[in-house]
Amino acid sequence: MNLNRRQFLVLVPVAAAAWQYVLAGTPQDAPNYQLTEHWWGMLLDITKCIGCGNCVRACQAENDVPDEYFRTWVERYLRTDWNLTTPEVISPDGGKEGFPAAEEVKNGMYFFVPKMCNHCADSPCTQVCPVGATFITPDGVVLIDQTYCLGCAYCVQACPYGCRYIHPTKHVADKCTLCYHRITKGLTTACCENCPTGARQLVDLKNPNDPIHAFLKTHDVHVLKPEMATGAKAFYNGLDGSVR
């Protein structure tokens, strides 16, 4: 365990080379990022989520998310056999510190659902913004220009998924950026980076080699509230019909 060796090595590998530019604050010089060559989304695998809350904590650490507001959160569903459409849902503090242990139920099923901005291709939130302060980028990420946002909260009302909030001190709309500052540097999002079970995977639909394409062929993948016709790009594997 030689510290000096590591200090030396950090400059050598290719990944670290890009990293230098990133840390120097000049991502435009890092391996070329082209807006038009990506179309980002996320795969959330309900069959793998253990409700540990790592994603929520990581998101907060990465993005300075204010307490009691959430760019991502985890819900725990209990769907009972006699009511398949009205589940019991909890999300204590957004699932940030995990969930209380659950006892086995005879006639019901538990599961966890991680939630986040769906980065909708036809988003109602960008539609209603009166000034163009929220928009979808050419690479498919719904962002907020917080230097331009009025803080009218119309987008918050328009989001069917409850992903937006008004930042309590900045007084502008805020939500998941799909870690835009990371994915444009060749990194994955903070939540994906920190998910211990691989229940969250950043996907790039424009990348023909992205594993999402093979995954979608063999799995039962849905989006939340498809009736809202938002073009949601948060893809859920194993999504139960009771999930809202």
Binding site: Q127, V128, P130, V131, Y148, L150, C152, Y154, H171
Partner: peptide, 25 residues
Amino acid sequence: LLLHLGHPERSFEMYFTPHDTSAMA
């Protein structure tokens, strides 16, 4: 409306760059 805005000083943007798909614009 103005008092409710998080940034009332930016309200002029509603006139200068109205978003044509927004009812509020």
